[in-house]
Every structure is written in C-alpha cells, then in structure tokens.
C-alpha cells in the first residue's frame, strides 16, 4: 500500500508556474494555497491580485480572483469584503503595488482595521516592468532607474511597511517573514495561516510581508539571490512579529 506523504494543494491549479527560476512567487503561492486548504476555505475565498508579476496569479489560484488596478487591491478587497462579509478576501501585492502607488490604500485599509488579509511580496524591485527601483530598494541598490545605485540624497530611503503600519491602532497582525531557508519558509506559512485565521475570527487587518527574491532583475543566479536576501535584505528588514493584538490583549 502506498501512502500519500505530499500532495499539491487543491487550491492550486495544475498550471505550471511561469515565474522565473528562483523567484519566490511560486513558494508563496503554494504556502497560501496550503493554508487555504488546511483551513478548508477554498470555496469561500476571493483573491485580489495586483499589477506586477502576480497579475497572472489567477492562472494558479483555484478560487475566485479579482484583478485590481495598480495599487488599488486593498480598496477592491474592501469593496468585496463589505459586500460579502462571510467570505475570505485577501490581496496579494508586490512592493511597487503596495508600498508605492498603493500606499494610501494600504495605510487606510490598515487603519480602518478592514477585515482582510494582505500578502506582501517585498523583493526590492519592480519585476514585471523589467527591474526598476522600488520603494523598498536598498540604499545603493543598482536597478534600471538607479543605475549608479540608489542614491538616498536624491532617491530617498526604503519604506519599511511593517514598522510603519505597526504605529497604527487599526491592524491586528503584522509580521515580516522570509523565503530564504526551510525554517524561514515554515515560519512564513505559520504567519500566513495566522493572517487568514484572524480574518476568519473577525480580528481585522492582517499583513504578512514576505522577503523574496527576483534573480532575473537582480542579475543574479537563484543561489546568489538567496544569499543577497540573507546578507542584505534581512539586516535592513528585520524579521519578526511587529504587531499582534491577541498578544497585547492577553
């Protein structure tokens, strides 16, 4: 008798990922879908996908998906959740979408304590448009629009979303996780699960920032990219739980 020890989550379609080799989207898509399966909410879930590489997420997610305009995913999710309060609504956004063009929507859905879940992929670069400087690009980072390295005098500093949102009363759960090692990926899944459970329990806004890689636009091999995440990103974007209302209350 053979025994199933691993299966692709049913919330993922059979479509092969078209993301670049070494890109973290595949990992995060799978984690999100595993969580949705484990919580048995596939039939209740509505995803809001962003503009960015994950604009194709609906090819992989096996539940209802609404594609939002660039940066507007939290507003779209708000509209859905307020219309269907018993459904599970999450946004899946990159750093350009969430932390640049959509900053207002991010901050205000957070401060309203909107009962949604936000999955935030921070890979410090615009992927889909070919590697431009992101709001989260590190000081000195070379991109297409910072060819001499991000100059903080003229191009400013990276935005630390978790730290910023943690100053608000509205959000219930804010965590930053990473996809660089197996233990970190396990941590990431736990955080994602909590962010969905919070919504199920009516706790309000939960966001998980996931430090991710973009080997193609970083001009690196997948292994080099993973090393950059560990050596450069994690020191600048410390991992951890930035807010957890449950803990505060207990």
């Amino acid at each position: 008798m053979s025994k199933t020890i691993y299966a692709k989550p049913k919330s993922l379609t059979d479509t092969t990922f078209r993301y670049c080799p070494g890109c973290s989207h595949g990992i995060v898509h799978k984690l999100v879908c595993e969580v949705i399966d484990e919580l048995d909410i596939q039939g209740k879930t509505i995803a809001v996908e962003p503009v960015g590489c994950a604009v194709t997420a609906h090819n992989y997610f096996n539940f209802d998906v609404v594609q939002a305009a660039h940066g507007r995913a939290p507003a779209v999710a708000t509209g859905i959740k307020r219309s269907l309060p018993d459904r599970i609504v999450f946004t899946y956004q990159g750093d350009g979408d969430l932390a640049s063009i959509g900053t207002a929507e991010t901050v205000h859905s957070a401060t309203r304590g909107e009962n949604i879940t936000v999955i935030f992929i921070n890979n410090t670069i615009y992927g889909m448009t070919g590697g431009q400087m992101a709001p989260t690009s590190l000081p000195g980072q070379v991109t297409q629009t910072s060819p001499y390295g991000r100059d903080t005098h003229t191009q400013g500093y990276p935005v630390r979303i978790c730290e910023m949102l943690a100053t608000l009363d509205g959000p219930s759960y804010i965590a930053r996780v990473s996809t660089d090692t197996v233990p970190h990926i396990k941590e990431a899944k736990k955080a994602i699960k909590k962010a969905f459970e919070n919504q199920i329990n009516g706790k309000g806004f939960s966001i998980v920032e996931i430090l991710s890689t973009c080997p193609t636009n970083w001009g690196m091999s997948p292994i080099e990219a993973m090393k950059r995440l560990q050596d450069e990103m994690i020191p600048y974007y410390p991992l951890g739980v930035y807010k957890d209302v449950e803990e505060v209350n207990e």
């Binding site: 509505i46 809001v48 609404v66 939002a68 779209v76 999710a77 708000t78 509209g79 219309s83 929507e105």
Partner: peptide
C-alpha cells in the same frame, strides 16, 4: 454599507470590488 474612502481613487475601487462581488 456607507464608507467614506481615503480618496476618490479608493472609493471607485471599492465600487469595483463590490460590483465584482455582485452587489
């Protein structure tokens, strides 16, 4: 539901979400 959005941009996108949800 009445919601005062953070901007007209957000308000119309909330409409987009609500309309997508069928209301």
């Amino acid at each position: 539901v009445f919601l005062q959005a953070e901007s007209e941009v957000a308000a119309i996108n909330m409409v987009y979400g609500a309309a997508a949800a069928g209301v």
